[in-house]
Amino acid sequence: MAIPLVPKLLRAHLAELAENDARIDGRQQWEGRDVEIETSVLPRAEGSARVRMGDTIVFAGVKFQIMKPYSDRPNQGGLMCSAEIRPVAGRNWESGPPSPESIELGRVVDRGIRESGCIDVDALCIIPGEKAWQVILDLFAISDDGNLFDAFALAGIAALRNAVVPAERFEVGEDYSLGVSKTPIMCSYHKVGDRFVYDACGREELGGDERIHITLGDDDHVHSLQKGLKGIFSTEEFTEIMGRAQERSKEIRDILDSL
């Protein structure tokens, strides 16, 4: 990823906005952009979703492969999650091998989904020790205007929820719905002008400091955390964010459930 120029005026302006409890696009501190979710949008994927938050647009697609179970876990299938941010998504994203930024994105989303236990890996086993399903979740950004993390995590879980295991194509039985038992939701907070805001837009990311990602399960259990970028934060700040994430993750889960 090319390192973008950060205008000093932008940082000064964001600081002034924060002091006056305002944001550059007119939102409140903890207000997210409108979320649009569409599912089953990719005809070649076994499960898919498109998420739009403001000018950030991402796709998630689920594919299945048959794998040989790992020798230490002969009764389990696998889950793999990878994020690709190609130059289509923004001026600063470049082609070439995956950047550290896109690898971080994929891994943080992966941990949230995996650790929530939403996918029963035991049920993915076809023949113990010989054959099992590998679920591959690919995250793909089309337009990056900030907070790809939440967009990816949301598209990812939405795609898994409508995924169908293509057993007929692989000649191992009848197709069946993958089934996702939990709904982990990621909420990301960015330090902008010396205070945290929810769902930072592109300009806030450009002129901001550190970010914190929290993935919560249905019962508010914490499944993954990540602090990214340069910056220092306090326990008090984190406690406030955690409280906000509990509220917001329920709202997002309701949107998903209403689809």
Binding site: F59, G61, V62, D138
Partner: peptide, 17 residues
């Protein structure tokens, strides 16, 4: 110019890279 097929664009998953 960069032409690329997304991993989920084909029946069998397309490996990125």
């Amino acid at each position: 110019v960069a032409y690329n097929m997304a991993p989920f664009s084909t029946t069998d998953r397309m490996r990125p890279g």
